[in-house]
Amino acid sequence: MPEAFGILTLATLGGALGVVLATDVVHSAYFLVLAFLGVAGYYFLLGGEFVGAVQILIYAGAVAVLFLFAVMLTRRRADPVWGRSPARWLGVGGAAALLAWLLLTHLERHPWPTKLPPPAPHNTALIGKALFRPFVVPFEVVSVLLLAALVGALLLARKEGGAS
């Protein structure tokens, strides 16, 4: 278990670091897949098989392919993060470092539970029941939102003025 956690941490944070530091946007997209798969591994480790499978399908599958298509359809240019101005490095880097310091010091101070309760045997069945009893209204709202996003994306990506 600690070994799995270490490997997943390496994959997730390494992938995220690769997304930020890669010069080519395509390499960023591949590193993004690595980070997504690492997060899916955490979900499996925490006993959430369904969320882990959805993470792999939606994020590592659909979203990553969408990103690659967007890179393919637009112009590809080198985007090195070290080419930005020193003022931007100071501002953004300082803000990120400050946020990391604040979060990590406060996390360290709190006594977190170390013992994971035994995971429920039927994770997917529990999610289905929760989704269709107490969470049925948000579930339906999300379906309407997905439909609206589908129509909106089609409308935005279509050529203007043409019938096609």
């Binding site: 995220a16 930020v20 997060v39 993060v81 803000a95 990120a96 946020l99 990391a100 990590l104 996390l107």
Partner: peptide, 10 residues
């Protein structure tokens, strides 16, 4: 937290 900070930075 680390993932969030890296995402913010990017």
């Amino acid at each position: 937290a680390g993932l969030f900070v890296l995402g913010l930075f990017g």
